[in-house]
Amino acid sequence: MSMFIGFKRLRIQPLGEDLKASGDQIVIQGDPNKGATIKAEVSGISKDPTVVSGSNVGYYTSRKGVGTPKIDFDLLDVPLDSETIILGREKSANGVQYTGEESEAPYCAITMESEDGQGNVALVGFFYGVFSKDKETMNTKEQGETFKPEADAYTFTASGSKQASTNGKYMAKYAGNSATAVSELYKNVLLSDPTQSNSGSQTDTPAKQG
């Protein structure tokens, strides 16, 4: 896989202190009033090589591991309830969101879905990390112009997996038409395979699965 075509869907699975799935997956896939994906930019997944000198030459190159993996998202119209969950904010009985000293984002697992150049499903997943949102933006409505909503910026800062079978791993990636491989990725990252459940619109089968 040398390229991604589009950004179809983001799945978010909040995790509890026991590292098990906590609550339903949050699925952002363009459903009316449920948010849409615009862009995801992954960085920090390669460690900058460091050359160690000895005997007046570059004797050893330290190159193992990752840098500081994170994903910068542009997401449109994320529901307030979903945002409250992933950012660890509080919500009153009347639906008011509160942010303060006790706000603490939960750990989450995520998968991002696209397509490769052959039309096969392309998945990128991160086992463990937290979301943050640093700002809110309001802009004036330009007179005579049609309103065009702007995406909000979220950051997902990844850590190594704490699950026994994937301990220390940060990212999982697959592109192809193997339903078995897709299921493996989902089960390892999200701890369940949403394509094998019966939960309505969240069960769309990825493109060209075999």
Score class of each variant (00 low, 15 high):
residue 48 D to I: 15
residue 188 N to C: 04
residue 58 G to E: 00
residue 98 Y to W: 11
residue 86 I to K: 01
residue 103 S to Q: 03
residue 74 D to Q: 13
residue 163 Q to N: 11
residue 68 T to L: 14
residue 169 K to E: 03
residue 45 I to Q: 01
residue 210 G to H: 01
residue 121 V to Y: 06
residue 35 G to D: 03
residue 65 G to M: 11
residue 104 E to F: 12
residue 89 R to T: 09
residue 160 G to H: 00
residue 59 Y to I: 10
residue 12 I to P: 01
residue 183 S to W: 01
residue 55 S to C: 05
residue 136 E to N: 05
residue 8 K to M: 06
residue 188 N to Y: 06
residue 129 G to P: 02
residue 51 V to Y: 00
residue 152 D to K: 15
residue 16 G to Y: 12
residue 159 S to C: 11
residue 139 N to W: 05
residue 125 G to M: 06
residue 104 E to L: 08
residue 178 S to R: 10
residue 109 A to D: 03
residue 128 Y to V: 00
residue 66 V to K: 08
residue 171 M to R: 15
residue 33 N to Y: 15
residue 67 G to D: 10
residue 111 T to V: 14
residue 6 G to E: 07
residue 60 Y to K: 13
residue 64 K to C: 10
residue 167 N to C: 08
residue 31 D to P: 02
residue 179 A to L: 08
residue 180 T to Y: 00
residue 155 T to L: 07
residue 178 S to T: 03
residue 129 G to L: 05
residue 152 D to Q: 15
residue 150 E to V: 05
residue 57 V to H: 09
residue 199 S to V: 11
residue 84 T to V: 12
residue 185 L to K: 03
residue 154 Y to S: 02
residue 75 L to V: 01
residue 96 V to N: 04
residue 14 P to Y: 04
residue 100 G to R: 04
residue 8 K to W: 03
residue 176 G to W: 00
residue 29 Q to F: 06
residue 153 A to V: 11
residue 2 S to C: 05
residue 178 S to F: 10
residue 84 T to A: 10
residue 143 Q to D: 13
residue 105 A to C: 05
residue 72 D to V: 13
residue 98 Y to I: 00
residue 134 D to P: 03
residue 150 E to K: 06
residue 167 N to L: 13
residue 107 Y to S: 04
residue 34 K to F: 07
residue 62 S to L: 12
residue 169 K to D: 01
residue 14 P to D: 08
residue 19 L to A: 02
residue 141 K to I: 13
residue 168 G to K: 04
residue 31 D to N: 14
residue 148 K to T: 14
residue 104 E to D: 07
residue 85 I to L: 12
residue 208 K to A: 12
residue 190 L to N: 06
residue 156 F to E: 01
residue 69 P to H: 09
residue 73 F to A: 03
residue 94 N to H: 08
residue 136 E to R: 11
residue 95 G to Q: 04
